[in-house]
Each structure stands twice: as C-alpha cells, then as structure tokens.
Design a protein around this nucleic acid. Structure first.
Length: 269
DNA sequence: AGCGGGACCTGTGGGC
DNA sequence: TGCCCACAGGTCCCGC
C-alpha cells in the first residue's frame, strides 16, 4: 500500500497525536508480524519523535530505542480511543496514557513492527543500503543515479537508487517526465534524467499535499482517506484517454509490475 | 547482470 | 449463490 507520501502522511498524523505520550501497555496479537525485538517492551516508554525514512515509519522512544514499522502492501497504523473495538487483522496494540491506542493493522501480514537500537538500525542491511530521500536531495544528485542497464522503472523501484518510490509514483513520475517505463536507464539523455528527477519531487510533493493516495484501504493515522488518486494521470487508467493527448493508455508488465503509460507521450528512447 | 517467476498472505471483483 | 481466476500500494530469493 503505502509509498513515501502515504508513510509521510501517517508520520505527520502521529507526530501531532502521540508525541509526548507514555505507552502504558503493549501487546502483540499476531507474532508473525514481529521483526527484530518484540515491540511489547515499548511499555513504560515515552514517545519522543516520529519520523520516516523511505517507506519505513519510525517511532523514537526516550530510552533511545526506536519502533520501526513497514506497511508493505496492506499495513496501517492508526490511533483510536482505547474503547474502540479492535478492527479485523489488528496485530499490535499500544495503549497510551491519554486513553488512546495505537494499532498496527495488516490483512495480508506482509508488514512488520519491531524495536531496534540506533546501532542495530545502522547495521540493518536494508536501511544501510537505502538511497537518498528524494525530497531532501538536490535533483542533480537524483538524476545522476538513473544509470545502469535495467529498465528505468526497475531502477526507480529499487530502494537503493531512491528511497520511497513505489509502483504508483514510479508510473506517475515517468508519465510526467515523458519517459517510457521500459527505457534502459543508460539510454536516458541528461535532459531526460533531469526531467525525471524534477518530476519525482513534484509528484511526491503534490501527493503529500493531498494526504497520499487511497486506492482501497489506505488511511492516515486518523482513519482518513488520501485524495491524490483523483490526480492520477496513468495509474489505474489503462484504456482511458491520456490526459494530455487523448491516446488510450496502455497497460503491461515492466520490472515484474503492472505498468501504465501513454504510447504517444512516453516514447521508448 | 538482470529478468521472470514464485513466495509471503488476505481480500475483492469479474466472469461464468 | 458459488466457484475460479486475476489482481492488489512491497520486498526477497531462486534459477536461467
């Protein structure tokens, strides 16, 4: 489910609601979603900050430990009143000192939650090899990373190239930059690379402004839907006319993922 | 090296 | 109504 804009939206929502709270109780309801140290030991801890790195959400605790969550395809993290009935597929629950509860809900159970020390975070191979944050990195630097003999879409989805881009925003960015998703990265011109870097930053910023994209089940920490799906130019629009030239959009598989593009506006370089 | 395919899971929607 | 298939926002692993 969530890519960078959705995780960022969740992080902002949590920052406004749970920072400063103390965790009274923490229970794991489905052990399969635990990674690293079990999050049950959050009990007694004060929540100091909440942030995001790539598609990972991090809750920093006063002791220095951090709770890390990855939502994969269907994970959610949200805050409700502690009297609210637990939704189906609630796998972790933290009761806070203001009578709120923080819930990790994930029907498909691809996601995970766990505790790490800062040192363990540094040593975790996935975190260590993450590429730069697209919104905190000059576009020229991002552009310089679009290399290699893979399809550009595969390069964008690789979290080591740029952190946080997934299937939706890869397709939307490639459309905005006028680049065919199957173009080999090494075949891109410098102008292509710069346009793509700018497009990624712009699309991600607009998506954050819209509170992310809700296709079916994404919700922010408060349970609200995002609105960016209303601005999709290509994702989920196969067969519909291109917003720019009215040519029917095409869907196929690129880099093993369902991919939509405009055959007219996105020529293969 | 890079790709395709499968695995991890459940839910939903379409076709018959 | 019920059944079967395809497909879904991510990542990892295997074999060619």
């Amino acid at each position: 489910m969530p890519e960078l804009p959705e995780v960022e939206t969740i992080a902002r929502g949590l920052r406004a609601t749970i920072v400063g709270r103390i965790v009274r109780e923490a229970q794991v309801l489905h052990p399969a979603i635990v990674r690293f140290h079990p999050p049950t030991s959050m009990a007694g801890e004060k929540i100091v900050t909440v942030d995001r790195r790539a598609k990972l959400l991090r809750i920093h605790l006063q002791s220095g430990w951090m709770a890390v969550a990855h939502f994969k395809m269907s994970g959610r993290l949200w805050v409700t009143d502690s009297t609210t009935t637990l939704p189906q597929h609630t796998h972790f629950r933290a009761l806070l000192d203001d009578n709120a509860q923080l819930l990790f809900v994930d029907p498909r159970r691809f996601g995970f939650v766990g505790l790490l020390t800062p040192q363990e975070w540094q040593q975790w191979p996935f975190a260590r090899t993450l590429g730069p944050e697209p919104l905190e990195t000059p576009p020229e630097i991002l552009a310089s990373r679009f290399t290699g003999r893979r399809a550009i879409k595969a390069v964008l989805l690789d979290q080591r190239t740029i952190a946080g881009v997934g299937n939706i925003y890869a397709d939307e960015s490639l459309f905005a930059a006028g680049i065919h998703p199957a173009t080999l990265a090494r075949a891109l011109t410098p102008a292509h690379r710069n346009r793509l870097a700018q497009a990624i930053r712009q699309i991600l910023q607009e998506a954050i402004r819209a509170g992310g994209s809700t296709i079916s089940d994404y919700r922010n920490a408060m349970g609200d839907k995002g609105l960016f799906q209303e601005q999709f130019a290509v994702y989920g629009r196969a067969g519909l006319p291109c917003t720019h030239c009215h040519t029917p959009l095409v869907r196929s598989h690129v880099a093993g993922r369902s991919t939509v593009w405009c055959p007219q506006c996105q020529p293969l370089a």
